[in-house]
Design a protein around this nucleic acid. Structure first.
Lengths: 151, 151
DNA sequence: CACCACCTGCAAATCGTTTGCATTTTTTCC
DNA sequence: GGAAAAAATGCAAACGATTTGCAGGTGGTG
């Protein structure tokens, strides 16, 4: 666990990402490349709006929604729900590598990236005891960050 | 873990719930009582809309939103985010007892209530290593239920 | 039983997200 | 390198969940 760091995995090259997209039989368009690049630069999960403003309006917000949706189903990005009604996304390594969780401050929304994922064996247990297949999980932590504690 | 059962904890009396509300220095109004009763009867987490229709329009949808919000901050109900953009709620025992998780079918949205909560010691670890205080968590599982697997 | 703070109903506003359609871009193939 | 087909984009409008302003109604306290 790394209380201060940014995204745990080292950043992949933009080329690597675009290659992955092409291999999925998807077109490489300017918005998609730019979105991947924006996510590559971001340290924390980004909302559609954040991505859109990082792009400085180089493409439409609707395109961000459509592209991120495609990137998600292509397995290039992972969605996170941090409690407010806003969806956020981070790059995901190949074969699902890079799966992790977050710790969010209830007061100031500061986000800490947590390195380890504890639950893989839990997924197994849940799957075998319920009969469900392809079990995944979503886990986030919430608390009050040091700064907000003293404030 | 109970793959087939409904809410794990036995249902509290409606009187018990209303008493808890009164003790929090909140008024006991008809809509609030009815909402608590609807949640008491429901086996799975209910959305505002579901609660509202369980009440057969005896109060306004906006009142459901306002009341559930109050019940949540009073610690009487707990919110669950099951992945679609819809918030769902279940009764929560006193002192936070009754905390648990769900397993949701990606195809048909069937929900399984999971009895155990694995993460309390994780909260400790996350808290001490990050400096955050009052750490809680949200954990849900997703998969494909037996029926949808064969379909 | 009267009063006051609080709550409700109603309707409109807000916010995130999706969608229809005409136009532009990417890719493929010659 | 260029034309044609398939797919993606921009724009604006639609949508669904949730919130809010305001006028009138209600709970519980003295």
């Amino acid at each position: 666990m790394d209380p201060h760091g940014a995204h745990p995995s080292s950043k992949p090259l933009l080329e690597t990402l675009t290659a992955r997209l092409r291999n999925m039989a998807h077109r490489l368009t300017t918005p998609r490349r730019d979105i991947l690049d924006a996510l590559r630069r971001g340290a924390h999960p980004m909302s559609h709006r954040q991505i859109h403003s990082a792009l400085r309006g180089s493409c439409d917000l609707a395109t961000v929604y459509r592209s991120v949706h495609l990137l998600e189903s292509a397995g290039l990005v992972q969605r996170f729900d941090l409690g407010d009604g806003v969806r956020r996304y981070e790059l995901l390594g190949e074969d699902g590598h890079g799966h992790h969780h977050h710790l969010v401050c209830r007061r100031c929304d500061r986000v800490v990236e947590l390195l380890e994922c504890f639950a893989p064996e839990l997924e197994q247990r849940v799957a075998s005891q319920s009969g469900y297949s392809g079990v995944t999980h979503r886990l986030e932590f919430f608390g009050t960050c040091p700064a907000c504690q003293s404030a």
